[in-house]
């Protein structure tokens, strides 16, 4: 049996968890079994997981689970895994999954592949690929324990609706108030933006834009595309853009379908966070910029001239 951990924000199932559900369902079918899900907290419409191929959802509606706290969640998920006899647990390698996976690994005495980027190969052992050395190499990781955990990098697999229905069972893990040691004082979300982590399209810019006042055209480009905005570390360090927009080794790692990099040279630390993007466009004045080697499409030119032209061309496309 495969168990999928469903992560949520404000009562809504995250897209990254729908990817995990799809991954879990496909893995279960390779293993000749079915996939269940565990959902913790006040979450709307968990029965829709049936449409993705999940056969049963264990749902604990305890509101103490509405915010993320890795310790009680690891306890509850391991209890769910044991109760249904799951030998594989699947979750997203998102911010919460990065905290939960290792805890659960210890709790279930289960080896983990943190950040898998391929479907598990079950033909000879239990192996999946994962990017290592900041994307410079790929490791084929094998889990040796009888229970296994796979956390999957976002955008590893497209969400697939297969049609179907599932049962929803009430689930009441045995937890006390002492298990919930972390209280949320406040949450500050960036307003009006598409969350970078889940964005399909990203427009990013670097220091060669010369100042935060020049970001208008980047924001306009993102708006036309329905894309999220991002930036290089240098830009976040001088506070031209907020830190949460920083992608790269020390910032967020993303893998959107389209990454447009404007005025970013492409240092290895930056590439580490974006090189798994499906299509990369690089706009830079320097023809020797290392980023062109990682790019699919390149434009040599000054951002101040190229981006406004790009915006006009995009508007034409959108106007049909």
């Amino acid at each position: 049996m495969v168990l999928v951990y469903i992560d949520h924000a404000n009562g809504k199932i995250k897209k990254s968890s729908l990817e995990a559900a799809t991954y879990g369902v496909q893995l279960a079918s390779k293993m000749g079994t079915s996939a269940c899900a565990v959902a913790l907290g006040t979450i709307e419409n968990v029965s829709k997981l049936g449409e993705y191929g999940i056969t049963k959802v264990l749902h604990c509606t305890d509101a103490r689970f509405d915010s993320f706290d890795a310790r009680p969640i690891a306890k509850a998920v391991s209890e769910a895994a044991i109760s249904i006899g799951a030998n594989v647990v699947v979750m997203s390698f998102n911010q919460n999954g990065k905290a939960l996976g290792p805890r659960l690994s210890v709790r279930l005495k289960a080896g983990i592949i943190p950040g898998a980027s391929s479907m598990v190969d079950v033909s000879n052992g239990f192996k999946a690929k994962k990017n290592v050395f900041s994307g410079k190499a790929i490791a084929d990781c094998e889990i040796l324990t009888s229970t296994k955990i796979v956390s999957i990098s976002p955008n590893t697999i497209p969400v697939a609706i297969v049609g179907g229905t599932c049962t929803v069972d009430a689930f009441n893990p045995s937890l006390t108030d002492a298990d919930f040691a972390i209280k949320v004082r406040g949450v500050e979300m960036v307003k009006g933006d598409i969350p970078l982590f889940e964005a399909d399209l990203v427009v990013s810019a670097g220091r060669s834009l010369k100042g935060p006042e020049n970001w208008g055209m980047i924001e306009e480009c993102a708006k036309i595309l329905g894309a999220a905005t991002a930036c290089s570390r240098a830009v976040a360090d001088v506070h031209w853009r907020p830190h949460h927009e920083h992608v790269g080794q020390t910032g967020l790692a993303i893998s959107p379908n389209l990454y447009i990099a404007v005025g970013i040279s492409g240092a290895i630390q930056h590439l580490a966070g974006v090189s798994s993007s499906k299509t990369i466009v690089v706009i830079n004045t320097d023809p020797e910029a290392p980023f062109f080697k990682a790019a699919d499409y390149g434009v040599i030119g000054d951002a101040m001239e190229v981006v406004p032209k790009l915006n006009i061309a995009l508007k034409k496309l959108k106007a049909g």
Partner: peptide
């Protein structure tokens, strides 16, 4: 106990050449 191991390493698939487009 050993929980997992890396069976082998490989290089990422080579990126096809970047298509250059005029500014």
């Amino acid at each position: 106990d050993t929980y997992s191991k890396i069976a082998h390493y490989e290089m990422p698939p080579a990126k096809s050449a970047c298509k250059m487009i005029g500014a």
